[in-house]
Amino acid sequence: MENRKAVIVGISGASSSGKTTLARLLRDVFPGTFVLHEDDFYRPETELPTKEGLLDWDCAEAIDIPEMTRALSHIRTHGTFPPFVDSKEDQNSIGACPVPDSAIALAKSRVAAWQLPGAPGHGILLQQHPSSSPSSGLLRMCVLDGFLLYSPEMQAGGVPPLLDAKLLLLVSRARATQRRERRDGYVTLEGFWTDPPGYVDKIVWPNYAAAHARLFRDGDVEGELDEGVLEEMGIRAQVGKGLDVAMETTFNWAVDTLMERLEELAGKR
């Protein structure tokens, strides 16, 4: 796969669709994997735009897209977490894991068997976290989670071409609102942010709908996905499964999808 040291997996979707939970699960299942968060590229609060009289954290203008692109390029070239990124996202709690330990253990066994000599996944990924850059021919995997990865602004900024696999998670407006309102808040560069009342209805959901309308038939983000657009953009989603799919189901789908995609990238399919 070219002269590089890592493959990068994008996980995108609405706020509270399960992106960070899934990213951390995949990190635990695929050896040598690390996580990068779109939220680590927020601009300072003083540079954020406003909407409805509130700071707008959920738009492309709030993200330093050139810096994120720089980080992704570093990962591809060096196979390591960018030393110039100060991650705040992993300081945020996402609550109890909704996937049982037994399902995680089974997924780990499946991936381990897939990587054995003679199996399709052998010789693609590093088997453990290295103390230095990956050796030739063995790759690390980076999982990037973010709420706007496939938006027109990210496309213009050159982000999607740096993603080797693109996963999209779906969630209903009701479920997203419920999950987001349960959160205590978010660690930021300046300290801590707590959503003001009505923030999801005024900012979060309208921004998500506007950025993702083209991925759905008739622009309805709670309707059916447009499979033609997904194929054109190289995005994989659980088409026909509904919006609020159980995380255990999503997790198993993501593991299978990534093993298949890694085989494709390695020329084994």
Rank of each mutant, 00 (worst) to 15 (best):
F41A: 09
L258C: 12
T46E: 10
G10H: 10
G223P: 05
S109G: 05
L144F: 03
P100A: 11
P206Y: 05
R24V: 03
A119D: 07
G223R: 09
V111A: 02
A211I: 05
T21A: 13
G228W: 03
T257G: 03
I75Q: 07
A176S: 10
A14C: 15
V255D: 07
L25Q: 00
N207D: 07
M247E: 12
E45T: 10
C59V: 12
D101H: 11
L169E: 09
H129L: 13
Q238W: 08
L106M: 07
L230E: 10
E263Y: 06
A210Q: 15
D220Y: 02
F81Q: 06
V204M: 13
L215M: 01
T69K: 14
G137C: 01
L148D: 01
I235E: 02
A62V: 06
L243T: 08
R179P: 08
M68N: 07
D256W: 04
A156C: 03
A71H: 04
A107M: 03
S135M: 07
R76A: 08
E227F: 02
V171E: 12
L126I: 11
K19A: 09
S17V: 06
V9T: 13
A156E: 09
T33S: 15
R217K: 15
S16D: 02
I203L: 13
Y199Q: 11
R175C: 06
A6S: 03
A266T: 03
T80Y: 05
A6P: 01
K241P: 02
L230A: 14
A112V: 00
P82S: 14
L22H: 12
T77H: 13
E2I: 04
L163Q: 08
G228A: 12
Y208W: 09
A112K: 04
V171S: 14
R214I: 07
M141R: 09
I63S: 07
L55K: 15
V255N: 10
D40A: 12
